[in-house]
Design a protein around this nucleic acid. Structure first.
Length: 490
RNA sequence: GGUCCCAUCGUCUAACGGUUAGGACAACUCCCUUUCACGGAGUAAAUGGGGGUUCGAUUCCCCCUGGGACUACCA
């Protein structure tokens, strides 16, 4: 049974790269019928952010990424846990890390270091100046446990470091990159327990992955350089190490690691901008991997069916919004009007538009193929929800026409529409053919009549067509707007 | 500086060592058309450089160059 995990630290929001990592873990578990564990890595008290765990869980749930084990939000929004390997929040596992740290100290794989930050700083600057590798000089390595005990009794502050072998190399096979090797002499004696008694990522991570029986560690490439330290830790404990798969990084347009500075990185930002979770999942899934040669739109089930670590790219992928916009449109196009209303409603409410569902349904139908995101709906359809349109008289006349013609055509159309039944407005297509026939019969041109009509109904230079809008407005409002437009031209 | 990773159109990517190097987004052109879109049809656009191996390298090996990550008592 394969077991994988996503182990974010709750620092405030879910990063788009984090979402992809979570998704790949989920896809892997889904593909192999394995277990997908969520674990919260909150061993750094300094970075603790109130509510971050709830926010993380909420965002994951919104994106449709569902861990099978670990913390989750119940219906009341309270954090609960499921699974046999808990607790799944590292701050609740401190005793465990202490226990394993002691084992390391006892076995000699770990040693106490009493070096002060000032001394460490000095060593570092000295090495940098001499163009030497910058790393801990292993000053406290030779200190006996007894000496250490004595200094502890004096109240000296200390950390636990990992004793890295002096020679040899640590080599492993990465599922994505193949064989990777590091000279032990160049690996730093990693701090495992901080002076505040909290474990660092490295210790907690290895202990938890082992205890939770993780078989595959699928994580970002930024962890590749610390993997030998983790491997050495597994060895020190006498444990079997999991398989590692280091995912290519998500990049800014300038190919640096994706950062907040250069655009949106929080999944929540995308949500607020009106992107659909299906589109985002589809989008990030294809950043670094493609199941086939000529297809772009996939459901999660289809992604899971095709998922294979070996097919993941090695190089970083620029996270470019253009394709997301397109994907989002693709999903929007396929959506029913009903569903669209449901999804877009929050964005209307946010803009202070509180309209009956029937009208909202017409509104989203008008713009379904014109907007890229849900957030664009309210602005794009605002003309439907106002009682009084402001007209720019100059806009009412079509390009090669003039105000007098516009006025006369509008008057003609007003008379024509007044003679139509209410039902005539219930179908845009037939209203169109009726009107076009009338325009032709009168010897008018389409542009000199339909442009003013459309502007009269929307007040805009760019908008959906006049008949769709008339359909959405209904006969009464259509007539009212044309009347107002004519007055504007008078 | 050191260690490690990476390298196909602008971007995301496809290509058992044998393809006119394919697709998608974006761009551009044309068609449709009452505006904007949608839709349709096209155009342009890539294997970083140099050595090998091979009958044949995008593909395998080496070097260079370039980019990136890491180099915390953060994860």
């Amino acid at each position: 049974m394969f077991r994988v995990r996503f182990a974010p630290s709750p620092t405030g929001f879910l990063h788009i790269g984090g979402l992809r990592t979570a998704l790949y873990n989920e896809l892997f578990a889904l593909h192999h019928g394995g277990v997908f564990v969520l674990r919260i890595e909150d061993t750094d008290r300094a970075r603790y952010v109130e509510g971050a765990v709830e926010n993380l869980l909420r965002t994951l749930a919104w994106a449709g990424v569902q861990p099978t084990e670990g913390p989750y939000l119940d219906e009341a929004g309270v954090v609960r846990e499921r699974g046999e390997y808990g607790p799944y929040v590292q701050s609740a596992r401190l005793d465990l890390y202490r226990e394993y740290a002691e084992k390391l100290l006892a076995s000699g794989h770990g040693y106490r270091c009493f070096c002060t930050p000032e001394r460490l700083e000095e060593v570092k600057t000295g090495q940098a100046a001499a163009k030497m590798p910058v790393m801990y000089d292993r000053h406290c390595r030779s200190l006996s446990v007894e000496d250490g005990d004595a200094r502890m009794k004096d109240g000296a502050s200390w950390v636990l470091r990992l004793r890295i072998p002096d020679d040899g190399a640590t080599t492993f096979v990465d599922a994505i990159r193949g064989e990777v090797s590091f000279q032990n002499a160049l690996i730093d004696d990693q701090v495992l327990v901080k002076s505040d008694g909290f474990p660092t990522y490295h210790l907690a991570n290895v202990v938890d992955d082992h205890l939770m029986q993780i078989t595959h560690v699928i994580r970002g490439e930024e962890w590749l350089p610390s993997t030998p330290k983790h491997l050495l830790l597994y060895q020190a404990f006498g444990w079997e190490a999991p398989m590692f798969a280091h995912l290519p990084l998500l990049l800014n347009a300038d190919r640096s690691k994706l950062s907040k500075r250069q655009g949106d990185v929080a999944v929540e930002d995308y949500k607020n901008k009106g992107y659909l979770p299906e589109a985002i999942v589809n989008f990030v899934a294809l950043l670094g991997w493609n199941p086939t040669a000529d297809r772009e739109v996939y459901t999660k089930g289809e992604l899971a069916a095709e998922f294979a670590l070996e097919k993941i790219n090695k190089s970083g992928a620029v996270c470019a919004i253009d394709k997301l916009n397109w994907l989002n449109r693709e999903y929007l196009k396929e959506m029913s009007a009903d569903e669209l209303v449901q999804r877009a409603s929050p964005f209307y409410v946010e803009q202070g538009i509180d309209a009956p569902a029937a009208l909202l349904e017409k509104a989203v139908t008008l713009e379904q193929r014109r907007v890229s995101t849900l957030a664009e709906f309210p602005e794009a359809t605002a003309f439907l929800f106002t009682d009084r349109l402001e007209y720019d008289p100059a806009l009412l006349a079509a390009k090669k026409s003039d105000a007098a013609t516009a006025k006369s055509r509008l008057e003609g159309l007003l008379a024509f529409f007044s003679g139509l039944s209410d039902e005539s407005f219930s179908d845009a297509k037939s209203l169109e053919s009726l009107t076009i026939a009338q325009v032709a019969a009168q010897g008018w041109t389409n542009s000199e009549s339909l442009w003013p009509l459309r502007v009269a109904l929307t007040g805009r230079a760019m908008s959906p067509g006049p008949f769709e809008v008339a359909w959405a407005l209904g006969k009464e409002k259509t007539i009212a707007r044309i009347t107002t437009a004519i007055q504007t031209l008078a």
